[in-house]
Nucleic acid binder design. Structure first.
Length: 860
RNA sequence: GGGCGAUUGGCUCAGUUGGUUAGAGCGCUGCCUUCACACGGCAGAGGUCAUGGGUUCGAGUCCCGUAUCGCCCACCA
């Protein structure tokens, strides 16, 4: 097969995607041992969303690394996962089918969703819900897979997994049960950050701070036994009924005389103590704070350390409870006043209580507006509250300095790319203040594989959870029955109940290496790929996905889950704003891929440095397209010059190896190519795909502009040296470009290298070019410089590049002249120098060029 | 409050242990339709490398400070 007359990029994506699929080019060979394998823990995209250019960006980086490793001879384990375990999928299934997950319902084998979703959502069992999810996800997966194939990801598509599928649920439940058995997972009844809209506990990793407007209200607490009143400032006056104490710093002389005396709360007249604690900040407000159960996380610390009572007023729905807490002695009308607040949201209650305080004269001065950071669930719309509830936790060092040190140590063991991303991990681990809360009060997800016995009175015995045998996993405790019980004992005294919660999605996705590798399900595969080599991911989920994956592997295998983590930057819209759905500035990738070509899209992505935020830039895509076209045309040209061959050696001279390459210019170019190979290889080895591409591209443009021009005359004339050098260079350059531009390189490869794929060809090594490595590097750039000077002269004279040159004087150092002379004929050829070339001494290169007189334009 | 990163021509960015005259691409200007490429080629103009000090024979690069921007973390009354 030879190059077509008019090579083109159109259709290469479809052509080669199917060809690779048919040939199994990227199929994982599971006969290889762990040492021969390069395993990648790919981020499973959320299937219910849509892919945008941000995905294209980071997945392209990973694919370039995968292709490099494959060409280096590693067998690349590169499976794709689909993340369908989580709120986005739950919502999508709900809306798409008009159903709602209700775990209390039995599994209905006959259930089929209505053609059109009904107005009223149909409640279905968790198993039915998961099945609908599987069904819907298949459609999403196909769209995603099509995009990934069009982009040229070298994934083995036979090895996909989902995060809600059987394997994932089994792995997730198994890992949990083992942690429970080892004491790494535990349950606790404790104050927990709570989202009142999702009605769900939220972990530290899902928090974000938002600056919100608020106001300080100065409120008077009455002294008792003749003491003065004390004025506190609070942003949450609605929690006065939940007040259990006032607190000031132990050294604060304004308040130290009052420690261990009592004041009474305004409106309700509840007696609360004044107490010292080191966390009270004399600089804030009036220097003395009210402690409520619970206004913020500091309240929890005070409440715990000062052993204060609990007076809960906020319910899990974010409204004030119907009844006041246990207050002891109160003002006579305390209950009546509370009744005015009961049932109101925190915000409504605040407005009303401020009015009440104003009426009672307990409000001092006007409210002082401020803005301050408040904790939100990252997907939530209202500030988090703190409620007390029973939850499951996994130890993560948040309460154990020794364990925390172990995880910091793991972070240092891991190779980070770029290296400074480690500091994000460390600041997160160092800032942990609680264990990892993994239970979620939701219905869709991986359920806790646990039941609890009911005692003779029907009370739940949480202290003695019933766990299934591992062989039964995955189980759904709401429909499966614990060993030793029968289904009719569910909910009965002496029987059992299911744990009602599901696990945090991160509790499952923290096991992606184990799930993808077939942990326990496929021990043979697992032994060949785990622990893995690479975790590629975005920096904003270092504290969640990356950290939690390390936690799980540390406990289960006493190992890192991978040796390297490559952290990608953000993709910004063309105006350098972060892309997000809510801003509506998301760029969908299919359109630009069609417009510019997959290789061009990949070029844009690969030009984004590791870990650096990068703007969507059509300009870069155009440049990538131009490069792809240049590769086609230059290759076609080079192959044409080399000439066809009927020998099995391939193109003329190629099979003769380095022996045929004798001309100093050819050898110099190949010496320079050897340096490029070394540079690109080092760059890839350190995960710097961008530097590898940059260097290769730079070389390639010089190769086209200068080398091809210099040697084409000689090559046409039949120089074996030139032809073999061209073939060697082309062969090497195609392989260097292959990880970045898989389509166009494969296309050219197919013109002259038979049936094999460039993507299974060996990555170039300096040894291939060893014969030239010690040759004079200076010849090639010297020749290129003089050729460039000739071109410049023609350009400045506004003459065609075809113009003959009648005389050239080169001013150069002896050294440069020595480098130049062996290539002089090539320079004359390339520059169309028909006259003499003279040399003069000169410190710097200068070239005087005399052009042939222009032909007289024929009189018109 | 602590930390990380960034700051280089109009725009987007390279610049790897300090070493001639700081590089690309886009955009702009001019020219060339040449037997690979007009989805092109060749060439040109354009930079006090944020800022103030310091180290050095020599600093875009190393050290200290400052400013601006972005991000991460933090017990945020």
């Amino acid at each position: 097969m030879t190059a077509p007359e008019k090579p083109s990029l159109e259709g290469l994506e479809d052509k080669w995607a199917s060809a690779w699929d048919a040939a199994g080019t990227y199929t994982f060979d599971r006969t290889k041992t762990r040492e021969q394998v390069y395993a990648i823990d790919t981020p499973p995209p959320t299937v219910s969303g849509s892919l945008h250019v941000g995905h294209v960006f980071s997945y392209t980086h990973t694919d370039a690394i995968a292709r490099f490793q494959r060409m280096r001879g590693r067998e690349v384990f590169y499976p794709m996962g689909w993340d369908d375990n989580g709120v986005p999928t739950e919502r999508r299934v709900q809306n798409f089918y008009g159903v709602r997950c209700d775990p209390s319902l039995p599994y209905d084998t006959e259930f089929t969703p209505p053609e059109k979703p009904a107005k009223q959502e149909i409640p279905i069992s968790r198993q039915n819900f998961v099945e609908l999810c599987d069904r819907l996800v298949v459609e999403d997966e196909q769209k995603f897979e099509e995009l990934w194939r069009t982009l040229g990801l070298s994934v083995d598509w036979s090895m996909t997994y989902t995060t809600i599928g059987d394997r994932a649920r089994r792995a997730s439940q198994r890992a949990f049960l083992r942690m429970l058995a080892r004491g790494e997972a535990y349950q606790s009844e404790a104050p927990t950050l709570w989202d009142v809209d999702f009605r769900m506990a939220v972990s530290q990793a899902e928090l974000e701070d938002r600056e919100v407007p608020s106001a300080y209200h100065a409120v008077r607490f009455a002294g008792t036994d003749g003491d003065d009143d004390i004025v506190i400032e609070t942003t949450r006056p609605e929690l006065i009924p939940a007040c259990v104490a006032l607190v000031a710093h132990p050294d604060d002389e304004r308040y130290s005389p009052r420690f261990d005396t009592f004041v009474t709360t305004p409106l309700f007249g509840v007696r609360v103590p004044v107490l010292p604690h080191r966390l009270a900040d004399p600089e804030k407000g009036s220097g003395i704070a009210m402690i409520c159960t619970f206004g913020d996380t500091t309240d929890v610390v005070w409440w715990r350390e000062l052993r204060l009572p609990t007076r809960t007023v906020l319910g899990r729905d974010g409204r004030l409870l119907p009844q006041p807490p246990d207050w002891g002695d109160t003002a006579p009308d305390a209950e009546a006043r509370y009744a005015e607040l009961a049932g109101k949201t925190a915000k409504q209650a605040q407005a009303r209580i401020v009015e009440l305080l104003d009426e009672s004269g307990d409000l001092v001065g006007a409210a002082k507006p401020i803005t301050h950071p408040v904790k939100f669930y990252e997907r939530g719309d209202r500030p988090l509250e703190i409620v007390s509830s029973r939850q499951w936790y996994i130890r993560n060092g948040g309460r154990d300095p020794e364990l925390r040190t172990a995880f910091l140590e793991r972070g240092r063991e891991l190779q980070w790319h770029p290296a400074h991303m480690r500091s994000r991990y460390e600041s997160w681990v160092e800032g942990l203040n609680s264990d990892w809360l993994i239970s979620r009060q939701r219905y869709f997800g991986v359920p806790f594989p646990l039941w609890y016995p009911l005692d003779a009175d029907g009370e739940v015995d949480y202290a003695h959870p019933l766990a299934p045998d591992e062989a039964r996993l995955p189980v759904d405790p709401t429909s499966d029955t614990p060993e030793g019980f029968t289904e009719d004992q569910r909910g009965k005294a002496g029987g059992f109940v299911a744990d009602p919660d599901v696990m945090d999605t991160w509790a499952t996705s923290s096991l992606t290496p184990e799930i993808a590798a077939g942990w326990e399900d496929d021990p043979d595969l697992f032994a060949r790929v785990f622990p893995m080599d690479l975790r590629p991911q975005a920096f904003e989920i270092i504290r969640t996905w990356l950290f939690s994956t390390i936690v799980r592997a540390h406990f289960e295998f006493d190992a890192l889950p991978w040796t390297d983590a490559a952290i990608s930057g953000w993709v910004l819209d063309p105006d350098r704003k972060k892309m997000s759905k809510s801003k509506g500035n998301v760029v969908t990738p299919m359109e630009p891929i069609r417009q510019f070509g997959a290789d061009a899209m990949r070029y844009w992505a690969a030009s984004g440095r590791p870990g650096v935020d990068t703007a969507v830039d059509e300009g870069q895509m155009k440049v990538g397209r131009r490069l792809a076209i240049k590769i086609l045309n230059a290759s076609k040209f080079a192959l044409g010059v080399i000439g066809d061959t009927d020998s099995s050696d391939g193109p003329a001279g190629f099979g003769k190896g380095s022996d045929a390459i004798t001309e100093p210019l050819d050898r110099s170019m190949l010496a320079s190519l050897a340096a490029l190979v070394a540079h690109a290889t080092t760059s890839f080895e350190t995960y710097d795909y961008a530097r590898a591409l940059d260097a290769t591209e730079r070389f390639f443009w010089g190769f086209c502009d200068d080398y091809l021009e210099l040697v084409k005359g000689r090559a046409y004339d039949g120089s074996d040296s030139a032809r073999a050098a061209l073939a060697t260079a082309l062969d090497t350059l195609l392989r260097l470009f292959a990880p970045h531009m898989p389509f166009v390189t494969e296309e050219v490869w197919s013109w002259w290298r038979g049936d094999g794929s460039v993507h299974r060809a060996p990555w170039p090594v300096v040894d291939e070019l060893a014969a030239f490595a010690s040759d004079d590097l200076a010849v090639y750039p010297a020749a290129a410089a003089v050729l460039g000077a000739v071109r410049k002269a023609k350009s400045e004279a506004k003459r065609s590049m075809r113009t003959d040159v009648t005389h050239v004087v080169v001013h150069a150092t002896t050294e440069l002249r020595r480098a130049l002379e062996p290539a002089l004929d090539d320079v004359r050829n390339g520059g169309r120098v028909v006259g003499d070339v003279e040399f003069e001494d000169g410190a710097e290169l200068a070239v005087d060029v005399t052009l042939a007189a222009p032909e007289e334009a024929p009189e018109g």
